[in-house]
Amino acid sequence: MATRIEGIGEEEMSNMESGVAVTNPTSQSKTKQGFFSSPAVVTITQKVVAELIGTYFVIFAGCGSVAVNKIYGGSITFPGICVTWGLIVMVMIYTVGHVSGAHFNPAVTITFTLLGRFPWKQVPLFIIAQLSGSILASATLAVMFDITTETYYGTLPVGSNGQSFAIEIIISFLLMFVVSGVATDSRAVGEMAGLAVGMTIMLNVFVAGPISGASMNPARSIGPAIVEHEYRGLWVYIVGPIIGTIAGGFAYNLIRFTDKPICELTKTRSFLGTKSRNDSC
C-alpha cells in the first residue's frame, strides 16, 4: 500500500512505482520565475531602459533643434539650439537620474567605472542602451524630415580634425569635472546637479558649437553618423570626449581629497579607489 514517505504523497508514490518521473511544482515554478523575478535583474533592466529612453530624448530634442533650424531657415537660431541642448539634458537628469544615474553618454559611463563608482559588468549594457537610444532618435528624425548634406544634424569638424579634437577634449573635461563635483561629492548640493550639468552643456555648445558641433558624447555623434552614413571625422567625437571625461573625472577626484595630507591620500587609496601597498607616510 502506498504511504506518504518523506513528503511524497500517494499520487507521487504511485507514479514512481509506474516509472513516471515526478516533478516538484514548487521548485519548477521557482525555476521558471527565479531569473526574471530577481530584484537584481529587475533593477538593471530598469536602469538600462531609463538610459535608452533618456538618451533617445536627449538626441531627439538636441539634434532635432539642429535639423529644424537648418531646414526652416534659422527659425530656432544658434542660441536656441544651445538652450535646447542644456534644457533637455537637465530635464532628463531630473526625470531618470534617480533610476540610472542619467549618464546618457558612454564616455561618462567609462569614466565612472574607472573611478570605481560604477560596476564593470553593467558597462556594456549601458553603452548598448545609449547607442541604441541615439540611433533610434536619429532614425526618427530621418523619417520625419528630409535630411540632406546641408541639413545634417550630426557633428562634423568645421576646421581641421585636430582643432575639433582639441576642443572636444577641453569641453568634455569641463563637463565631467562639473558632473563629478555636483553629482558625486557629498558636500555638493545634489538637487542642483541637473541644473549645473545642463548649464555646462549649454555653455559648451555656445563656445564649441561653431567649431566642432560640441558633441562631448560619442553616442550623440555615432547615432546620426550611422543613420545618415556620414563618418567624416567620427573618430574625433569618439576619442576626444573619452579622453576629456576621463581627465576631468580624475582631476576632480584629485581635489576631492585635498582636506587630507598627501601621505594619507597615498596610504589609504589610489586614484582608482583601490588600497595602496604603502601603509606609512
Score class of each variant (00 low, 15 high):
Glu6Ser: 10
Glu6Cys: 06
Gly9His: 02
Glu12Lys: 10
Ser14Asp: 01
Met16Ile: 13
Val20Met: 02
Thr23Gln: 11
Thr23Gly: 00
Asn24Glu: 06
Thr26Cys: 07
Lys30Asp: 09
Thr31Met: 00
Gln33Glu: 12
Gly34Arg: 12
Phe35Ala: 04
Ser38Leu: 04
Ser38Met: 11
Val41Gly: 02
Ala50His: 06
Glu51Ala: 06
Gly54Met: 11
Thr55Glu: 15
Ala61Gly: 08
Cys63Leu: 01
Gly64Met: 03
Asn69Ser: 07
Asn69Tyr: 04
Asn69Glu: 05
Lys70Val: 04
Lys70Arg: 10
Lys70Tyr: 03
Ile71Glu: 00
Tyr72His: 15
Ile76Asp: 01
Phe78Gln: 09
Val83Arg: 06
Leu87Arg: 05
Ile88Leu: 02
Phe104Trp: 05
Pro106Asp: 12
Ala107Gln: 00
Val108Ala: 02
Phe112Asn: 10
Gly116Ile: 05
Phe118His: 10
Pro119Glu: 12
Gln122Trp: 07
Leu125Phe: 10
Ile127Ser: 07
Ile128Asp: 05
Ala129Phe: 02
Leu131His: 02
Ala142Asn: 15
Ala142Val: 05
Phe145Cys: 09
Phe145Thr: 05
Thr149Gln: 13
Glu150Ser: 12
Glu150Arg: 08
Glu150Gln: 12
Thr155Val: 14
Leu156Asn: 09
Ser160Asn: 06
Asn161Met: 09
Ser164Cys: 09
Phe165Trp: 12
Phe165Val: 02
Ile169Val: 14
Ile170Tyr: 11
Ile170Asn: 04
Ile171Tyr: 10
Phe173Lys: 12
Leu174Asp: 10
Leu174His: 03
Phe177Tyr: 14
Val179Gln: 01
Ser180Thr: 01
Ser180Ile: 00
Val189Ser: 09
Gly194Val: 03
Gly194Met: 06
Val197Trp: 04
Thr200Pro: 00
Leu203Phe: 13
Asn204His: 10
Val205Cys: 11
Phe206Leu: 11
Val207Arg: 04
Ala214Arg: 13
Ser215Ala: 15
Ser215Asn: 12
Met216Pro: 08
Pro218Glu: 04
Pro218Asn: 13
Pro218Cys: 06
Ile222Phe: 14
Ile222Val: 11
Ile222Arg: 00
Ala225Tyr: 09
Tyr231Arg: 07
Arg232His: 13
Arg232Lys: 13
Arg232Phe: 08
Gly233Ile: 02
Gly233Lys: 06
Gly233Val: 00
Trp235Gln: 11
Val239Cys: 01
Ile242Gln: 11
Ile243Arg: 05
Thr245Trp: 01
Ala247Lys: 00
Asn253Phe: 07
Lys260Arg: 10
Ile262Gln: 06
Leu265Gln: 15
Lys275Tyr: 09
Asp279Asn: 12
